[in-house]
């Protein structure tokens, strides 16, 4: 496992950590499943509760906001549902990422393993949550059919990008917030706030095309919100809506920049995590 014959450079060690962590797929794959089974152990429906609670929340909010905004239910509900499922993944990666090493203090100080193992486990768990929630999406497609086509397959690379970004955010936020413990609550508050600032319950296109020009003008500010782009690249194909290249370009740029930043953090502080936890 930890077999080092020469002293590699910090950069090589950072890469080695990520690579060896990936090599321990059996471990984090198992632990990720375990986490989900654990949460619903001894409950009758088990992990089906993930699906049920998502369905209840999305339907209730769909009905509420369809009424408030005066939209039809078949427009509002699918929009909220898909937005909610995707947001659940994004928020899970960030919130749990900011305490991923703090939560695993026992394992980190007792067993030699690449620190990336804990991040892989977290991301895998979030992927599994996402897949459970896709069941709600499938039912929704039956009740409210969407104009899906070949372009809808873009949801797959979009999700891959979401996963790649979730991984660097968890790794970077995990390391930094292990050092600065205030960052975990700060991060979680920001994520909470971003939920309202991102078009999840409110429909972005409707505001852009608002008859009131000042609302349409203000809606454009949302383009500065990076989460909007992440949501758009996957929600648009899942709802068969028009897709825009600019969202993809922003997400790709963030992916590259984010991993570059994370690599710098890994190179500099990876070995300190065991000291800080």
């Amino acid at each position: 496992m930890s077999s080092t014959s020469i002293q590699p450079s910090p950069s090589a060690r950072a890469l080695q950590d990520v690579r060896e962590g990936w090599g321990q797929r059996e471990l984090w794959g198992h632990l990720g499943w375990q986490d989900i089974r654990q949460r619903y152990r001894r409950s009758l429906l088990g992990p089906l509760w993930i699906t049920i609670s998502m369905a209840v929340t999305a339907i209730a909010l769909g009905i509420l906001y369809a009424g408030l905004f005066g939209n039809s239910l078949e427009e509002q509900l699918p929009y909220i549902l898909v937005g909610f499922i995707v947001w659940g993944f994004i928020a899970g990666c960030i919130n749990e990422g900011s305490e991923v090493f703090i939560a695993n203090v026992g394992l980190i100080t007792h067993l030699p393993a690449p620190i990336s193992v804990h991040v892989y486990r977290l991301i895998w768990r979030q992927v599994l949550f996402f897949v459970h929630n896709l069941a709600v999406y499938a039912v929704m497609l039956i009740v409210f059919p969407q104009p899906l086509g070949w372009a809808s397959l873009m949801a797959i690379p979009a999700f891959v990008l979401l996963v790649l970004n979730g991984a660097w955010v968890a790794l970077a936020a995990g390391i930094v917030s292990t050092r600065f413990r205030d960052l975990t609550p700060i991060t979680q508050s920001i994520v909470q706030l971003m939920f309202f600032m991102t078009p999840i319950v409110w429909i972005y296109g409707d505001l852009l095309n608002s008859p009131n020009p000042s609302i349409a003008e203000r809606a454009r500010i949302a383009e500065f919100n990076p989460f909007l782009h992440f949501l758009e690249i996957i929600r648009a194909p899942m709802l068969g809506a028009d897709q825009h290249l600019r969202h993809w370009l922003v997400v790709l740029a963030i992916t590259v920049a984010g991993w570059a930043l994370t690599f710098v953090i890994m190179r500099r502080y990876r070995a300190r995590v065991a000291y800080w936890v």
């Binding site: 930890s2 014959s5 980190i108 007792h110 067993l111 030699p112 065991a274």
Partner: peptide, 19 residues
């Protein structure tokens, strides 16, 4: 075990470790 990397100096461990 390789859990702590030394803050100064070096530690080279060759072999599969079981702590």
């Amino acid at each position: 075990a390789g859990i702590y990397e030394p803050t100064s100096g070096t530690a080279v461990v060759s072999g599969r470790v079981a702590p």
